[in-house]
Amino acid sequence: MSIVFLDPMIVRSLNKSKLRKKILYYLYNIYPYGTYLSEISRGVKSDPSNVLGCLKGLNGRYNGHFSLIELGLVECEEKGGIKIYKLTEYGKKVVEVLKDQDSDIISSMRW
């Protein structure tokens, strides 16, 4: 068993946004694969602009410093002009630590 350091900024960011957590859990469910923005949006039942804000940060509403990409939990790869978002290895470990605490969020999502 390996020990995972949870940066307090990550915990704060995820506790402030249920949508960030939902996105992380969605990407965890399809790990090691990634998917595009509209598919994530459908999976978490949220508007694509809100999902993009959680992933990358967006104007004043979503602080870029607390975005999933900036925190190192999600990465974005461009393939053929399409951006694919997927969980990083560190993101996977963070979800595995947090998922016991968040069983209510996980059970509310229908995969």
Rank of each mutant, 00 (worst) to 15 (best):
Y25I: 02
N59E: 14
D47W: 02
S17T: 11
L71A: 08
I23D: 04
S103G: 07
V44K: 10
R12Q: 09
K83N: 15
R42K: 14
R12L: 08
R20D: 09
S41V: 00
V74L: 02
M109W: 01
D47C: 12
S108A: 11
K16A: 04
D100S: 13
E77Q: 12
V51C: 01
L27W: 13
K45Y: 07
E75N: 04
G91V: 04
E89M: 10
L27K: 14
K99D: 06
P48E: 07
V11Q: 11
S108E: 12
K56I: 05
R42G: 12
M109V: 03
S108L: 05
D102T: 10
G72E: 13
G81A: 06
S41L: 00
C54K: 02
I10F: 12
H65Q: 13
K21E: 05
R61I: 15
E77F: 05
L27S: 11
R12G: 08
S49N: 01
V95M: 03
Y90Q: 04
L68I: 06
I82E: 15
V44D: 13
N63V: 14
E96W: 14
D100L: 12
K21R: 15
L98W: 08
Y28L: 06
K22P: 00
I106H: 04
P8C: 08
I40V: 15
L19V: 11
I69A: 07
V11P: 03
L68D: 03
L24H: 07
E70T: 11
I30Q: 07
R42E: 12
F66W: 00
Y90S: 03
Y62H: 14
L24G: 03
Y28V: 00
